[in-house]
Amino acid sequence: MDVPHTVTTALDDRSVAGKRCLEAGAGVGNATAGLLANGADRVYAVTNDRDHARTTRRRVAEAGVGVDDGGDRNDDTGDRLTVLEADLRAVPLPDGSVDVITAHGLCNVLDPAALSAVAEEFSRVAAPGAQLVVDDYDPPPDDAAIGELFAVENAASELARGRPALTFYPAAFLRRFFVGHGWEFERERTLLEPVPWTESHVSAHVERAASTAAKCPDEPGDALAATARRLKSEIESESVGRMYGLAFRLPD
């Protein structure tokens, strides 16, 4: 599998080789692949989504993930990756047990309460001197069409579950937030500008909005699902906003 350039850029000034890593919110395995490709000694990819766990395992296994190392490192990929199905608010790892934590596109799926709980866990599992990499999106500009779709996704989620699906935290917010949790800020870089919300992203968000809307009370649920589907054809794709990468270090 190809490691996205967002991930390679977020990691290229981080020291990962030989380290124990926690990839928080494994998604489809992109950051996990990046950590393994950069020589991580062990990656704990934690996700509460069974499909994501499966996808991460499968993609990493299929690719062998040695990436550019001529295949020598591929053989032990299985030994270096552990995919854990768990809630990030209760990470099943001991205190002080990881040297690198990556949260690539994670924070935007955490509402403020969840974000606080997850940050507590990061501080707990991080060893002294550990690195934290937080990659996320600034809030989309007010006139972004994709913002309407996110609003529908959030409305459905609020009605169905009482919390938003997506919260876009500005870089400055997360920077101060993690500093408040004891991390020293090291650097910020721009990973994507504009952010390409492609047809496949739009349709994934539409599907997510529609399936959440199906769990809402009938009338508003139907209206939200219909709006999401209408937005799919209206938006198609849009390049807008910024994805940033923050890096922190825990004092020794």
Partner: peptide
Amino acid sequence: AAQRSLIERVRHDDSPVPEQLHH
């Protein structure tokens, strides 16, 4: 950042992995 944006866009246009909400 704009070069990476373009790389990401074509990678997703091309990608066999469904259900990607993020980059």
